[in-house]
Nucleic acid binder design. Structure first.
Lengths: 191, 191
DNA sequence: TGTACATCAGTGAACGCGCGTTCACTGATGTAC
DNA sequence: TGTACATCAGTGAACGCGCGTTCACTGATGTAC
């Protein structure tokens, strides 16, 4: 079988998409290559046609997922979605219950802390980008003050979403999301 | 060899202490039982004299580590440490660089989200406890408002510490910690 | 136009390894008689 | 007091299994002549 131009790149992206979901749902350490390839409709061996190693895939997945997230947020803000609505989406039960398609930072930040410097740098660049996007939507104060608030707000979003996912009890979980939203808006200086 | 009274309980606690550090440093999924037992100065087989399974150990570790943390915070507050100083300790470079002896929530929250309900309930009880401790130190507003703020602050602490650990770059990491501290104090209504 | 060879994404079996778990055994001490 | 047996935390080899990775091979298509 010989394939049309671009086929290899399409397959590579498909593997990244599947792995991206699996990693966010199950964690990098607990998800294996055989499982990813099987879910992608391929066999074990084809993996190394596309990636050098599992760590190479992790970097490709992070790069892709973080990029998509930042683009999504930028797009929403350009389409005049309010910062509050963006944060509300982030701290929603829907986002909480769909980690596989959700924020890669919330799903993988603890694991990224244990990965090589190259992987961490990739992550850092994305955090910077998100902070700038949030800061640009804040009103009042100096640039430095808006940057400070943006970091605090982003940290709260990531921490609260993770806790909401980990407590199990739906009522308590919902309370965490609501209270973090109120806290974020209070910091942002809106209602 | 027959052992003095309490020996088994001492050994069990020693295994928990070792596993607690290893899990927080490396993550539950990436740390094996053979490694834990070897670091505890014992062999493989002895593990099942003390625990039914790895999940049983995970619960024992979480229960122990979360309990210790909550007690530590309660003790500091009773000894009249200010809330600000407690949060400053939490968002310190020292805490960031010593995950093994640090907050189990920040280290393991993402993994707890993937563990059984029994494990999640254990975690939820501890979050509730910490929130109450923080809320009791807040001034002004109704009880409900203080609870809201306490949850937002705790979420921010956990999220910011994790991001500070994952970005690699020390300068950026320090900036995240400082800005989260400022955000938390702003929410708490102090300086 | 027909034949021989090159290309290369994907196959599927196998590699060594460490995982969580099991189990027959050890041996120092306690208890029974 | 001396002997026989029970106790049980810990040993260390082994279990089946899935991990990440390697590799000889396939086979449809493209290119050369």
């Amino acid at each position: 079988m010989r394939y049309e131009k671009g086929h290899k790149e399409t397959t590579r992206q498909h593997i990244i998409d599947v792995a991206s979901r699996e990693f966010r749902e199950g964690g990098v350490a607990a998800v294996g290559i055989a499982g990813i390839m099987s879910k992608a409709g391929l066999t074990n061996g084809a993996f190394y046609v596309h990636f050098d190693s599992k760590e190479d895939l992790v970097r490709a997945v992070l790069s892709d997922a973080l990029e998509q997230r930042a683009r999504g947020l930028a797009g929403n803000l350009e389409r005049h979605q309010s910062l509050k609505d963006s944060i509300r989406d982030y701290l929603s039960t829907r986002h909480r219950d769909h980690a596989g398609s959700g924020c890669p930072t919330a799903a993988l930040v603890a694991e990224i802390a244990r990965h090589p410097a190259q992987t961490q740098d990739l992550f850092a660049g994305n955090v910077e980008r998100i902070v700038i996007l949030i800061a640009a939507r804040l009103r009042g104060g100096t640039n430095a003050e808006r940057r400070r608030k943006a970091m605090a707000i982003y940290g709260m979003m990531v921490g609260a979403l993770q806790m909401a996912r980990a407590v199990g009890d739906a009522k308590f979980s919902g309370e965490i999301l609501e209270n973090a939203l109120a806290g974020a808006m209070s910091l942002a200086g809106e209602d």
